[in-house]
């Protein structure tokens, strides 16, 4: 019982330490430095900004409403 309690408390402490570490790591790595670039990181030349990428089966991609 004591061992289980210790494991749970240690896990909780580890979780808290990991969260703080992850935040400071991300800041040092510059993850929050260029938000515009971050927001655009899911687009590329094949699926660029400005192109709709999902349609109903009955709708042709060129026919925007």
């Amino acid at each position: 019982m004591f061992l289980i309690s210790m494991i749970i408390w240690a896990t909780a402490l580890l979780g808290a330490v990991m969260t703080v570490w992850a935040l400071s790591w991300a800041v040092k790595r510059g993850e929050f430095r260029n938000p515009r670039q971050g927001a655009a990181s899911i687009f590329d030349a094949e699926e660029p900004i400005g192109r709709q990428t999902d349609f109903f089966p009955s709708i042709r991609p060129g026919a925007r409403s």
Binding site: A39, I42, P48
Partner: peptide, 25 residues
């Protein structure tokens, strides 16, 4: 991921999105 990807528009405020994650956490 899906709303920006399907519409072809980046997230309106990336700063806000990060603030949202860390405050949820």
């Amino acid at each position: 991921y899906l709303i920006p990807k399907v519409t072809g528009r980046p997230v309106h405020s990336y700063h806000l999105s990060l603030l949202g994650f860390w405050t949820l956490a």
